[in-house]
């Protein structure tokens, strides 16, 4: 399976990764190789097989509805890149 520059650019955008033009070429080649490896999956018929979501067939456990988490904002924001007034700051978003 071959990926071209524009495929790589689309994927990089979805994944929010800034890649340079020369990186794009290299990634296209590397990702294409990986997809060639992955293409081996086509060798087996899986029409009647159920996909495995979890190795163990367990079901979701439920927790009681109790608000027990205290306010630890100062601790959590101690290493934050940019905050003000308890808010996390990002460059202005226009909606």
């Amino acid at each position: 399976m071959s990926l071209d520059r524009s495929d790589v650019e689309k994927i990089a955008h979805l994944a929010r990764l800034a890649i340079s033009p020369d990186q794009t070429e290299r990634y296209a080649a590397e990702l294409s190789n990986i997809l060639d490896l992955v293409a081996q999956m086509d060798s087996v018929n899986t029409d009647d097989v159920e996909p495995m979501a979890h190795p163990l067939h367990m079901v979701q456990r439920l927790r009681p509805d109790q608000a027990t988490e205290p306010d630890r904002r100062a601790e959590y924001q101690a290493g934050a890149p940019l905050t003000e007034g308890g808010l996390y700051l990002v460059p202005k978003v226009i909606e």
Binding site: D71, R72, Y76
Partner: peptide, 23 residues
């Protein structure tokens, strides 16, 4: 509910920013 869907942080409206957001 008293707490959030996947965590035990409180859901009450109107708290100071990020005081009801746990890990």
């Amino acid at each position: 509910t008293q707490s959030k869907i996947f965590s035990a942080a409180p859901t009450a409206f109107g708290a100071e920013p990020n005081t009801q957001a746990c890990a």
